[in-house]
Amino acid sequence: MKVNKDGNGYTFAFSIILVIVVGVILSSLSIGLDPLKKANVAVKKKMNILSALGVESTRQDGSDKYDEFIKDSYVISHNGVLQEDLPEEKKAFNLDVQKQFRDKTIEVSDRLYPIFEAEKDGATIFVLPVVGKGLWGPIWGFVALADDYETIVGTSFDHKGETPGLGAEIAQDFFENRYNGEKIADNGQFTPIKVVQNGTGSEEQKVDGITGGTITSKGVEKMVNKTMRVYYKYFSKNK
């Protein structure tokens, strides 16, 4: 029997079979790989937190080390007030600060700020997430603060799509280390840290930016200062 391939019936039947086959293959693949993907995202976040602490980790041992170093985590509001009884998806680790930053329907004053409390070499260190925007898209990272509540002891930054070799260098160790030792406060007053392009980064409250990555560097400056201001409100109250 010769089937009329240009007939409507054949075309419909073919399309329906195709859609079912494709749908089944893709759904099972997606469901099968989903736990792996979710785990990857979570491990990456843990690795970033650890990196700000100055702890090297790999995708394999990221989770274990996270449990080893991070002792506690909690969430504060934009005014620096500790938040309690939050639903599961707003707990410190699950809170998506990037989404919160991008979503215009959330007022700035309604944003939540997680704090990860870590213990390293006997000292308490606070790891604080920061988000902002670079030249091409979002940039984010973590800043580690010593227990004097003002000295930065480590940072780790990451980005979505900054220019490789220029803005993208913010994710490199050499840039991240430039923040070490800077203070976000002086005599109980918040003080911003400037990212400069003229090579005077060794001065106090100044960090050298990335040559050719001016806008991304400025983005980092804005991101760190804006978020640290909020956290300092909390720390200065709870010293």
Binding site: T163, F190, P192, G212, K222, N225, R229
Partner: peptide, 18 residues
């Protein structure tokens, strides 16, 4: 609004393109 000083940076910065 968040109580901070406005950071002064150039409006247009074409000298160093990122």
């Amino acid at each position: 609004e968040s109580g901070g000083a406005v950071e002064t940076s150039q409006i247009i910065n074409v000298k160093q393109v990122n």
